[in-house]
Nucleic acid binder design. Structure first.
Lengths: 168, 168
DNA sequence: CCTATCATGTAATCCGTTACATGATTAT
DNA sequence: ATAATCATGTAACGGATTACATGATAGG
């Protein structure tokens, strides 16, 4: 019964549980799909295994419904909150890596125009969606998600600029 | 003895081997550090295990030095070249994910100013290095790496802009 | 000569992905 | 009713990271 190490995935689960109070993995999946998932995607299976791991370390509590579907309900514990707070307070000097498949192909000699065309279309679609989300965003959305969205928009625009230069 | 699937890591190894003719894992490590590594980092152990995997599938050939250190020398095979060409020719609509730790913290409520300060410093350092590299880049560097570097510079600038807005 | 550091490699662990499976709802 | 899709979960596999380990080379 050893302490699991806390990965970014862990903090996503902890953060979401903290925000929402309690949730089943499926609920988490839905929340992810409408928020963090836009810039940090997770497999749905992770949302089943990760809370389990966290429960082993006492960062979340697990409760099983008695009747019906016997779903598992998780909530963050004090220990979990502490870990989350600590992590959040510590600034990172780790930088985002690019890790862009298209860029990798480009690096290894793919035809710029071909790659650019496909990328442009995809990025434009994404940008449009981000902007739609921002439009429809209610006033009371907390600052963090709002800023993350802004970052996404900015990055999208930057990529579009890059690929446009190559597409023509 | 089954065919290994080809991952981005695989293509990096294949691509580098193609470019350089033959190499030991350590040599690969050095090349990575001065090129792809800037935007797609690999653990050095992967550069030992990945060529092995690729050898199992016949994408590279493995040869062991007789005397001395008995190092392993790898070179890309015809099959490897074919795989590489195919991959390169096929455009992706997969988009780069952000996967930025700092952004994740921001999303979950970290203090923007704190995060921004650390990020700014790191990004500025990176940008400076990219620009130095571009300055010193000889004329005959192929287009792919050059473009990848441009992308890196552009992204760095974009991030710096974003974090600057938050730092003040 | 001794000690760092470089060069080279293997082993173990673990997270993440993929695949599989099945009970509930909804639509036709 | 039946098919399709949603909801829920587990199991297996494999790639990636981490840790460990040792021989060579260079610097002091």
């Amino acid at each position: 019964m050893q302490e699991p190490r806390l990965t970014p995935t862990s903090y996503i689960v902890l953060g979401l549980l903290w925000g929402v109070g309690e949730a089943t993995p499926y609920k988490l999946k839905q929340i992810v799909a409408g928020s963090v998932g836009y810039f940090w995607s997770l497999q749905h299976a992770q949302l089943y295994t990760e809370p389990e791991r966290l429960a082993r370390g006492g960062y979340v509590s697990e409760e099983r419904e008695e009747g019906g579907r016997r779903r598992k309900l998780y909530r963050i514990t004090e220990k979990g909150k502490r870990a989350m707070r600590d992590w959040r307070a510590e600034p990172t000097d780790t930088l985002a890596e690019l890790r862009d498949l298209a860029l990798l192909k480009l690096f290894f000699g793919a035809d710029p125009k071909t790659v650019a065309t496909a990328q442009l279309e995809a990025h434009r679609r994404t940008l449009a969606e981000y902007e739609r989300i921002r439009q429809e965003m209610p006033e009371d959305v907390p600052r963090g998600p709002r800023l993350a969205l802004d970052a996404g928009i900015r990055q999208s625009r930057s990529w579009i600029g890059f690929w446009e230069d190559l597409a023509s």
